[in-house]
């Protein structure tokens, strides 16, 4: 399919850095829109769930806009490719411990917990970190030698190793950097803020969808 015929939807749930993601996808030449409407999401070839913000506010907003039901239909039943970014990835989990215990979408079995470094390290984990890619994932297919991406988070995703596609080392821990289950992908880092590596990742996610 030609670039311009591919439609990418970025989910709008009032929080999140929709503009930066939109900007990156537009730069790559795809048709892209920010929306929370069922009809528009249904038309998209790929869906991105961005995220900057706190878990509770985000999931409440998603439920209020009935995006949980829409995504269940489009992503779980119709198998549309979904990429969750940062908080968007954490929302895929069953629960999060950020400021209380909250239910997530439950698309990938896992729980979100506070980072508690073993060695002296600051929280949030912020900055450019190298990935250890442990499972061949199509989202990494266009990377070159450099595998660093920009992270910025205080909570991290814990799940079974079968869903983990990459990790990164921080504060004596091996943090989950990305998860994958069938057509559902989640990245803890911010591709829209990771310069060329981020653009390569978006291209790979969208082209392989």
């Amino acid at each position: 399919m030609k670039y311009k015929n591919i439609q990418v939807a970025i989910i709008d749930y009032d929080l999140g850095n929709t503009y930066s993601v939109l900007n990156a996808i537009e730069f790559l030449g795809y048709k892209v829109f920010v929306t929370s409407e069922y009809e528009k999401l249904k038309k998209a070839n790929a869906i991105i769930l961005p995220g900057v913000g706190a878990f509770e506010a985000a999931i409440k907003s998603i439920v209020r806009k009935e995006l949980d039901k829409i995504l269940t239909e489009l992503v779980l039943q119709e198998q549309k490719p979904l990429l969750g970014i940062c908080l968007g990835m954490q929302l895929l989990a069953n629960t999060s411990e950020e400021n209380g215990l909250h239910q997530g979408l439950g698309f990938i079995e896992g729980n979100v917990k506070k980072i508690t470094p073993k060695s002296k390290a600051a929280v949030p984990h912020v900055g450019w970190n190298d990935l250890n890619i442990i499972q061949n994932s199509k989202i990494y297919s266009r990377l070159k030698d450099s595998k660093n991406f920009y992270f910025d988070h205080s909570y991290h995703f814990e799940c079974e190793s079968q869903y983990i596609s990459a990790t990164c080392n921080y504060g004596g821990l091996s943090l989950v950097a990305s998860v994958q289950k069938n057509n559902i992908f989640g990245v803890q880092f911010h591709p829209e803020k990771s310069q060329n590596n981020g653009l390569r990742l978006f291209r790979a996610f969208i082209e392989n969808s």
Binding site: T18, Y19, S20, A24, V52, K193, S194, Q195
Partner: peptide
């Protein structure tokens, strides 16, 4: 629009609404 790395913005922020608008304008 020209920035593919994190962007932090300061100056003139006095409410939560300002922060919301800034994040919608592309500030991280």
């Amino acid at each position: 629009k020209k920035c593919f790395v994190p962007l932090a913005v300061g100056g003139g922020i006095s409410s939560l609404e300002d922060v919301r608008k800034l994040t919608q304008s592309g500030a991280d």
